[in-house]
Design a protein around this nucleic acid. Structure first.
Lengths: 346, 346
DNA sequence: CTGTTAGCGCGTTCAG
DNA sequence: CTGAACGCGCTAACAG
């Protein structure tokens, strides 16, 4: 049988209340001697309070939920680690949920998490056009933070984001400012807020440079290696079948994530197109893999780990009733030039 | 204020017990009409029972804890996903803990998890020579399963493992059976059970083939790309500084994991050694990355996802009081030949 | 078939 | 400074 607080109380010859007070480090209410004595017994017995009982009494669980699409996507491990580290530092535990970008699953997870009594949730939501998952949270007053993806709705939620527009700007500026650049823009799913922001960034640059919109060709991928390879492969294929001596359909690729960029790289290699001499490629995210492919992938780097830890810290603030000055924190991406770009100005 | 079971009871004009019965789908004890009516109210109100109260009353949380070294290591995401999928299917939630291979952290996590009232834990422990983490679990009778690493101790625990010995056998047999093979064996941390089993597998093959032990050179890495690159790089360096015309110190590398193998590949490339012509390389694990490097890495593949889900299923059985026939399930590795081996017999 | 009752283990008033 | 008593929300015996 598990040892309870009354066992301790009996053993120390005091009441449960007194034990509870030293257990929770309440500064007042217990004499120094008694406190020390009880503490000793606590240590000896290795007493562990019941989270259930404590939760029932206090309404807090010291656990939070994190919902992401899929830990198997190489972007997420670092993010998750950032979250876990920050939480652990603060004495919180983490429920991990993989939603597969499925709104129904996402909602189910939210419901389950609330039943478990989580003190808050961090949501990297699948869609950006529905906030029904959030209604549940909102209804019960459970604090939450959105991560990386903006969920459109009436209210602006607390969240931490990457400045995707700026990221796209950095990459496309680099590419389009080069003489005679014909860009292939390989974007992610259209309903993701990130994708939308990236085309905005691209538009910025196109206008700045006074370019015709025909100078960029759009492709719609799904953030997977396969889609990148397929799309670029197809484009290359129709080109190859055309009359000889004709130019490549593009000489630069900007992909919405590194996975698609790597897919593009593969297609390029299959068609014996030289990178970066004939076609330059820039990805997005800067996952670990980007440094490991050959040639190493130039990419828009985001501080993934920090985004995770910042979101956890933001949530912790909300949980502790502090109103953070700003509802959202926006992190800045940087352009990392490696082997898939010509790196002229270095 | 949160809505409780008595609110429902009042609203339906019945007692809490009755509501509880339909809530938990107890087949008996409630008439069909009343059941339907109560169910309706439950749905309308979107009532969510309190996990705390339920846990306190039943002693179960429907949550389990998973302790791994580091989700950031590319081996783990798939494993974790396997666990999560199996758990989710069974209505369980997952606490994720990163121990960094630190025994103290590991123990702390076990303690915290027990406080949270987890119904069981899956432990991918750092060390194989201490089972003090398990004492805590054992003392409270919390079911647990060890994963991938054998923890030495008096008792044999429930667990799922890969047959590392067989894996090493497959790889080294392939390499050493080739005429004039001089093998570099780049093993992981010596205190990991896997490492020990792999040298056993190697020994098997050396004996079988009647080879002198001098035909294999041992290196001690730490499972990181860096260590693989460093170790093989150093070996190559001393060779290069020697008299001209001398043979390479080895013509085959077997690494304890893919990361080190990839490190080795990098070193080899730096020294302009041709793979697989001059040196063949085989890794271990078959992480996604293995297919993406150039040339694609030949490796000993393990069913990582299945190992995760099997361990979760095993734990679930224990939780449900079923005594599985076998305490351990051992999964079989396969040799996947890709671009870093000569693949002669195909 | 249904309601009543008694805990589950802890935090927290409120008296003393 | 300390203890007694109540309540958190739910389940599980036990009556009826």
């Amino acid at each position: 049988m598990k040892i309870t607080i009354s066992d301790i109380a009996k053993q120390a010859g005091v009441s449960k209340a007194t034990v509870s007070r030293v257990l929770n480090h309440h500064p007042e209410g217990v004499g120094a001697e008694k406190r020390a004595q009880i503490q000793a017994i606590l240590n000896e017995t290795g007493f562990q309070p019941s989270g259930f009982a404590r939760g029932l009494a206090t309404g807090k669980s010291h656990s939070i939920g994190l919902i992401i699409p899929n830990i198997t996507n190489p972007f997420y491990p670092l993010l998750v680690r950032g979250v876990e580290d920050a939480l652990n530092r603060a004495g919180y535990s983490l429920f991990l949920c993989n939603s597969d970008g499925d709104l129904v699953k996402e909602k189910d997870y939210v419901r389950v998490l609330m039943e478990k009594g989580v003190d808050g949730v961090i949501l990297n939501s699948a869609a950006s056009d529905c906030d029904c998952q959030l209604d549940l949270l909102e209804a019960q007053g459970v604090p939450y933070v959105t991560l990386d993806r903006i969920i459109e709705g009436q209210v602006l939620h607390y969240g931490v984001f990457l400045d995707n527009r700026e990221g796209a700007r950095l990459a496309t500026k680099y590419l389009l400012s080069q003489e005679g650049c014909r860009l292939a823009f390989l974007n992610g799913p259209a309903d993701h807020s990130q994708s939308k922001l990236r085309v905005a960034g691209l538009d910025d640059v196109v206008k700045e440079e006074g370019l015709p919109l025909s100078s960029v060709r759009f492709f719609q991928g799904d953030d997977s290696i396969q889609s990148g390879q397929l799309l670029i492969g197809e484009a290359l294929d129709t080109w190859k079948q055309g009359p000889d001596g004709i130019d490549l359909p593009f000489n630069a690729v900007f992909a919405g994530n590194d996975l698609m960029a790597i897919g593009a790289l593969r297609a390029l290699k299959l068609y014996n197109v030289k990178v970066p001499e004939e076609v330059q490629v820039i990805g997005f995210d800067d996952i670990e893999l980007a440094q490991l492919v050959e040639p190493a992938l130039s990419t828009v780097s985001q501080p993934t780990f920090e985004m995770g830890s910042r979101s956890a810290e933001l949530l912790l603030q909300l949980i502790n009733g502090k109103k953070p000055r700003t509802k959202t924190v926006t992190m800045k991406p940087t352009l990392v030039l490696r082997g898939t770009t010509k790196n002229l100005n270095n």
